[in-house]
C-alpha cells in the first residue's frame, strides 16, 4: 500500500511508516526520531520517501528530542552513491501522548535546515508521529515558498 498526497506529491510505503511508528514506540514515553531518505521524480513534482537513518547519538525526554549526525555520516553517502541516488530530505520524530502538530522548536529546526548551506534542500519534509496507547496520527509537513505546509 502506498500513501499518496497530490499537488506537490509525496509517497511512502505503509511498511516504512509502520516501521517508524514501531521504532518510536520502543522509546515510549520519550520522544524519538531520525532522518528521512528519498528522491524526487524527474520533474521534481513528486517526492518518494524510501528509507530512514537512525541517529546513534541522541538525547530525549517526554517533550524533547535532540539528534546528532555523529557516527552515521557515511550512511548518507551510501544512499547518495546508490541507484537511484537517494538523499536526505527531512526528519521525523514522535510526540508520545500528543498530537502531531509542530512545536516552536520543530519550526525552528526546519529553519535551521533551510538556512544550513551544507544541507542544500529547498523543501525539507517533517514527519511527526503523534501516538498514545490507542491512537496514532501522522503529520506530514513540507517547507514550501517560505511557509510550513501540512500535506492533506
Amino acid at each position: 500500500m502506498i500513501l499518496k498526497i497530490e499537488k506537490i506529491g509525496l509517497s511512502l510505503e505503509a511498511e516504512l511508516l509502520n516501521k517508524l511508528l514501531e521504532i518510536g514506540k520502543t522509546h515510549y514515553q520519550k520522544e524519538f526520531g531520525g532522518f528521512l531518505i528519498g528522491y524526487y521524480s524527474e520533474d521534481n513534482r513528486h517526492l518518494h520517501i524510501t528509507d530512514t537513518v537512525l541517529p546513534k547519538r541522541y538525547q530525549a525526554s517526554k517533550y524533547s528530542f535532540e539528534r546528532s549526525t555523529e557516527g552515521i555520516e557515511n550512511e548518507f553517502t551510501e544512499f547518495y552513491t546508490g541507484t537511484p541516488i537517494k538523499i536526505y530530505i527531512g526528519e521525523w520524530h514522535t510526540h508520545p501522548n500528543n498530537s502531531p502538530i509542530p512545536s516552536a522548536t520543530d519550526i525552528s529546526a526546519i529553519n535551521t535546515i533551510i538556512n544550513n548551506k551544507n544541507t542544500s534542500i529547498a523543501n525539507p519534509v517533517l514527519l511527526i508521529i503523534g501516538y498514545s496507547k490507542n491512537t496514532v496520527d501522522f503529520g506530514f509537513y513540507v517547507w514550501f515558498e517560505n511557509n510550513l505546509y501540512k500535506y492533506d
Partner: peptide
C-alpha cells in the same frame, strides 16, 4: 508546484532539536 533542486549531496545539520 515543484520541489526545489539541491546542489550536491545534502548533509543534515550536525545537531538539531525537536520538541
Amino acid at each position: 508546484n515543484q520541489y526545489g533542486t539541491n546542489s550536491g549531496m545534502p548533509v543534515p545539520p550536525p545537531k538539531l532539536n525537536f520538541g
